[in-house]
């Protein structure tokens, strides 16, 4: 078990190093020299000024030296300064995390709460009318992207019914009810695909589990179906669900960019988009590395959760 954790941690660090280097490479190698973002094209006639700025930003050093410097700073929490606003990238990220974080957490909780009963009902009555409706609905929901769902929700619940604000964000520190009002529609839009994915996972996993001998054996003990479903069958399926939730964080992070753009939420995704349009390469690099790190760390955590929940793996390693 100790060696299992050690291997995972080594792999985590290695992946983070490679991911950060790749992002660095990506941002620095691709066309569109950073100098264009630092100095307006018209002002680039002044060779001396250009050279001075290049030296100031360290653009003339060899690639590896620059990466080393950047990494050294990054480890200490310094991802550089935005070349547009001159504010520290890390503090901008920290300022935006609560919005994106809340959005993702609410989405995952809501989706799991909805998907587990749906998947269980569907698997328990496999092949029935109910199963066909739930499975068909999930297949359809899987095809509705966040921006289509979001626009529909804005049109119906904000414009026609006026129940929720169409755009904007109220921080939870300002007003809890206001915060709930602003998080509902974005989270619902993100949930459409997530619910579909989780329902399908729970269903297909449970259908297999329910055919296991130990389910039959539990029935022959005279236990109630509900008890068997939730205490015996759902436990192995919950492992698969945890993995899929972890793997889906990547999809969800992409989804938050779209939804934050649509609902004008001051989150990490919206900041990334703004940085992209402003060609603020320090900000793009910082956010990309940060997001990739979150993704990698979450997936390592999922491995650890697995370790805690499944006694067989605990034994094997």
């Amino acid at each position: 078990m100790g060696s299992f954790i050690a291997t995972r941690l080594v792999r985590l660090v290695a992946t983070l190093l490679v991911v950060s280097f790749l992002t660095f490479l990506l941002v620095n190698l691709l066309p569109g020299d950073a100098i264009n973002a630092l100095i307006p094209i018209e002002a680039q006639q002044d060779q001396e000024y250009v050279a001075q700025v290049r030296a100031e930003w360290g653009l003339d050093d060899p690639m590896l030296v620059r990466y080393g410097k950047w990494l050294g700073d990054a480890v200490r929490g310094d991802l550089g300064d935005s070349i547009v606003t001159s504010r520290a990238v890390s503090s901008e990220i920290a300022h935006r995390i609560p919005v994106t974080g809340e959005l993702m957490i609410v989405t995952v909780i809501f989706s799991v709460l909805l998907a587990v009963p749906l998947g269980v009902m569907s698997a328990y009555r496999e092949g029935s009318r109910l199963d066909q409706i739930i499975s068909g609905g999930a297949q359809f929901a899987l095809s509705v992207p966040g921006f289509v769902a979001g626009l529909l929700f804005i049109y119906v619940f904000a414009m026609k019914l006026g129940w929720f604000p169409a755009t904007g964000w109220t921080r939870i520190s300002n007003s809890i009810s206001g915060n709930l009002m602003t998080v509902t529609l974005p989270a619902l839009s993100l949930s459409v695909i997530e619910v579909a994915v989780y329902t399908r996972v729970v269903r297909s996993d449970l259908v297999t589990t329910l055919k296991e001998d130990y389910i039959l054996s539990a029935r022959s003990k005279g236990l109630k179906d509900g008890f068997i479903l939730f205490r015996h069958a759902l436990r192995p399926s919950s492992l698969t669900l945890i993995t899929v939730v972890g793997l889906n964080i990547g999809l969800l992070l992409g989804g938050t960019v779209v939804v934050e753009f649509l609902f004008a939420l001051p989150g990490l995704g919206k900041r990334l988009l703004d940085a992209i349009f402003q060609r603020d390469f320090m900000m793009v690099q910082g956010i990309t590395v940060f997001v990739a790190m979150v993704y990698v760390v979450v997936n390592t955590l999922v491995d650890f959760v697995y370790l805690v929940v499944d006694p067989r793996i605990r034994k094997a390693d």
């Binding site: 296991e212 001998d213 130990y214 039959l216 054996s217 539990a218 029935r219 022959s220 003990k221 005279g222 236990l223 109630k224 205490r231 015996h232 436990r235 192995p236 929940v309 499944d310 006694p311 067989r312």
Partner: peptide, 25 residues
């Protein structure tokens, strides 16, 4: 009614003890 019979009146031992016990319980 069957659930009342199962376990108390009729019980079954299955073929494969590997699969008839829940591995996670």
């Amino acid at each position: 009614e069957m659930r009342q019979l199962w376990g108390t009146e009729m019980a079954m031992v299955f073929q494969d003890p590997m699969t008839s016990l829940n591995p996670l319980v």
